[in-house]
Design a protein around this nucleic acid. Sequence first.
DNA 1: TACATTGATGCACACGTGTGCACTAACCTT
DNA 2: AAGGTTAGTGCACACGTGTGCATCAATGTA
Lengths: 340, 340
Amino acid sequence: MKVTIKDIAAVAGVSHSTVSRALNDSPQISKQTKDKIKDIARTMDFEFNAGARSLSGRKTGNIAVVYKASYDQFGSSLYISQLFIELRHFLERMDMDAILLEAYHPETGASNISRLLNQQKIDGFLIVHDNITRKDYDSIKRSCLPVVQLHLPPMYCHKEELDYFFTDHFLGGYLATEHLIKKGCRRILTVLSNDSDSDEYELRTAGYRQALEEQGIRFEEKLIIPVDCTYLKGYYLFNTIPELIANVDGIFFQTDIQAFGFLTAARERGIRIPEDLKVVGYDDAPICESTIPQLTTIHQPRRKLAELACDRIIDLINKRNNESRIQEILFPTLVIREST
Amino acid sequence: MKVTIKDIAAVAGVSHSTVSRALNDSPQISKQTKDKIKDIARTMDFEFNAGARSLSGRKTGNIAVVYKASYDQFGSSLYISQLFIELRHFLERMDMDAILLEAYHPETGASNISRLLNQQKIDGFLIVHDNITRKDYDSIKRSCLPVVQLHLPPMYCHKEELDYFFTDHFLGGYLATEHLIKKGCRRILTVLSNDSDSDEYELRTAGYRQALEEQGIRFEEKLIIPVDCTYLKGYYLFNTIPELIANVDGIFFQTDIQAFGFLTAARERGIRIPEDLKVVGYDDAPICESTIPQLTTIHQPRRKLAELACDRIIDLINKRNNESRIQEILFPTLVIREST
DNA sequence: TACATTGATGCACACGTGTGCACTAACCTT
DNA sequence: AAGGTTAGTGCACACGTGTGCATCAATGTA
């Protein structure tokens, strides 16, 4: 049988109320009693019953991590997996468990968000890389459960109402392009992914454009190339747009995997990188250290992002500093390797 | 405020007991009453309060999915991510949520398993790709919570005591090697990963050996090459063991990513694949369709594995067919592409 | 008509924890 | 010494759901 506070109360010779207060560090209990009770609890391997606790005190110790599952080559499933490792790391310190799920049932479309709300299974939401409907957004607001977003909030809601953290994609695009220019590039192509419903690629492209114009380089619409986010599309870029590649001296790939494919193809064609052509990627995936040459890229501060989001959601759950919203945009950094 | 069965009872003009029984399909309640109550529940968006339910009925609706996080290039984090998508898919149908965590706290080493047990937060364990200590194994047994393993059980426990499903790595090794032999290979190298504490690579190698010996080909210890599980190690295999590669006509890579690196290097050296040398990988990662040439590999039935494990754990939770253990070994299949 | 049987429902308590309020004992003040 | 204050603790109820047992109405039987 499981140990309950009543068992501890019996051993300590006090009532279960005193045990409850002692273990929750209530100021009403004397230090002496607290120490004694905590000792007993430790030796008996006591843990609070999660169900009972949530029933009376409204704390479940669970956080819903909402994400969008995908089955792509390396891209978002790897990114999510890595970000989740970081999130778990910080949640663990606060003795929080993560329920990982998609916002909507892939078949029925039923909302997991409203189900969790009604079941009162969780203390808050961390929303990673998925947009939720207006209706669910309103449900969460009505429930007063805290939400922290790890991306730009959806269009329909006032940004002032939400806590969110994300990385500055505009700056990332700017840094990548600026670096290429500093290295001497004068005609720069950018390749981006076409299979995303978010606007991160638009922002990166805007940063690319800004860097060009600041340096007095003409921005050309035709140098923006959207293709699938795969190794092979990067590899076959020489076949798709040969005349463009022949006339540029730098390429800013907005995903590492596309850059990876391109680097391989370039090597096979005897194009020297970085001497003939300079290449920058985006994301700083683990593969960047394995490409030949190693890939210069934009690093997104995954760990910092996870830490801020976790700290914030914990604060909100504990009603600390919750009178106003926090929105923070983290700076990506340039990681210079051999391809530039 | 949340809707409770008392609210429904008030609307329906019955007691909360009747509502509870009706929604749980108790035979004591008339069909007429049931239908009426279920209708009301639906219109009121009712969901059971998870905490209260677990407190009284011992069902939480949560499953712990225990895995070992890793930060590698494509390997296990991608595999876990994909397997988890499948697991979620089947759990979702049963309205189960997944709490995803590691067995032990990476810093303190504290056991999440015993914590969850004591907190009574979950109904069962799905253990993916991680070994748990004898002590925790005993704790789980004492708690009578069901466990299903998605890999070989640890050495210390009697296999008859556990439910588990995994894929036949011996057969995978056999199929890969047999295929190479059928395609005319007579001297076959195998490359495996050295960064795993499980014995899947040993099994694959044993299958490799069996296939060789069945066809009267001499097994040579020196043709077994353990290297890191990275793209680059595959790529530089020509540098590491040039004399061996020069004298073989087939290579069985026990991870796709190593094979991927090798294929790239081979193309650069003008070695024709499959004409000069045939190559097989393992796992059927998404990248296999992007390699040049596309990679023949061994497919592990991820979806089937997830389906069986989920069905089984649900059965065990509901005390169906739980008088004996189920152990099933799934067959991997050969996926023939261009590299053989 | 009286009684037995069956089917449907409600009452009351249990599960483990949190908390407002009342109570006690000890100490302080005048 | 009487009254007031304070610190520490226990009582009793609440949270939402499940369930054994009692109850009640309806129906069947003799």
